[in-house]
């Protein structure tokens, strides 16, 4: 019982801290943070990083730090949009094809690391370069034939608007929670992340678990891509690893959630962290920090900060 009480106490403290930060920030921006409309904006913006982070959770926990996720989102969202608009497949094209391509792309990246035994962050970088290149290549052709280099999702955009977004968010949370904490796959992924040797000896098929985890993760990433494509209408191609900045907020979110893993379980922690990180940028915007320069600098600083927090008092060897 004592352990549970201690945990509850920690959760209360965490919640209190978040609340206090909000109140203080609210005062700093003259009450513009905690208005109904602003909170709605924050929630809307927190949904995309939440999904990306849940996806990362299923992939990163087993030790695969895949950085191609950003390029994956851009490429699969564009494929989905092309299927929906150009090929006239409608919602089926948008949802089905985005999810399918997200899964396939993720499998490519993860397989590359698992089968070729390349460190996952390098295989991720390599794959990100390749995915970006494919999209760039397509955009160059498209700009010649269609006039504009990126496809615009004109119709089928309900999933990027309230209240549908919020509903999808809640369903996504429930799915992430159950799979991560209450399914054999989730427990096996966590076992691999916690102690590979034990997991192996207990008959857990490492490769299969990691790859299945990547499938589940990719579904969440695909959902994130759909939501973002529907919300923004258009996702432009990037080059030179520019896609990395797409997932930076999510990276911060995952790291933050990881550092509070002892207090709240990851899927829940991700919701809190996503809202927290999004609010932070909301505050920055309210203060008047320009995006692209000042906000990006803060983003880098925040990821570093989250990295520090999540490795606080870590004793092992860090490369």
């Amino acid at each position: 019982m004592g352990v549970k009480m201690r945990k509850l106490k920690k959760q209360m403290i965490l919640l209190g801290c978040i609340g206090a930060i909000f109140v203080i920030s609210n005062m700093a921006v003259d009450g513009r943070l905690l208005t109904w409309n602003n909170m709605k904006i924050i929630i809307t913006h927190a949904i995309f990083p939440s999904f990306v982070s849940w996806g990362m959770m299923f992939i990163f926990t087993s030790g695969l730090i895949d950085l191609s996720i950003g390029a994956n989102i851009l490429l699969s969202a564009n494929i989905g949009a092309i299927c929906a608009m150009d090929l006239g497949m409608g919602y089926f094209g948008l949802i089905g094809m985005t999810l399918i391509s997200a899964v396939i792309l993720e499998q490519l990246s993860v397989n590359c690391s698992v089968n070729l035994k390349i460190p996952s962050w390098i295989s991720g970088l390599g794959m990100a370069l390749i995915f970006e290149a494919i999209l760039t290549f397509y955009s160059t052709i498209r700009s010649k034939t269609e006039g504009s280099s990126n496809i615009t999702l004109v119709n089928y955009r309900e999933m990027g608007s309230m209240p549908y977004m919020a509903i999808i968010w809640i369903i996504g949370f429930a799915a992430a929670y159950i799979i991560f904490n209450r399914s054999t796959l989730g427990l096996n992924i966590r076992a691999i992340g916690g102690n590979e040797g034990v997991a192996k000896a207990m008959g857990i098929n490492m490769k299969k678990t990691m790859l299945s985890g990547a499938v589940v993760g990719a579904l969440f990433i695909g959902m994130a891509a759909i939501i973002q494509e529907s919300y923004a209408g258009k996702l432009a191609s990037t080059s030179g690893l520019g896609s990395l900045s797409t997932i930076f907020k999510s990276l911060a979110t995952v790291l933050l959630a990881q550092s509070f893993e002892r207090v709240v379980s990851m899927p829940v922690g991700i919701i809190f962290s996503a809202v927290f990180v999004t609010s932070l940028f909301n505050v920055l915007t309210l203060i008047g920090v320009p995006s692209g320069t000042g906000q990006e600098m803060c983003l880098g600083a925040i990821v570093i900060l989250c990295g520090i927090i999540s490795h606080w008092r870590y004793k092992g060897v860090v490369k």
């Binding site: 962050w121 990276l251 983003l299 880098g300 570093i304 520090i308 490795h311 490369k319």
Partner: peptide, 15 residues
């Protein structure tokens, strides 16, 4: 602070 170097330097790259 034991932040993995690729993560820290990636953040620095962007910042």
């Amino acid at each position: 602070f034991k932040v993995p170097s690729f993560m820290a330097s990636l953040s620095m790259l962007i910042a």
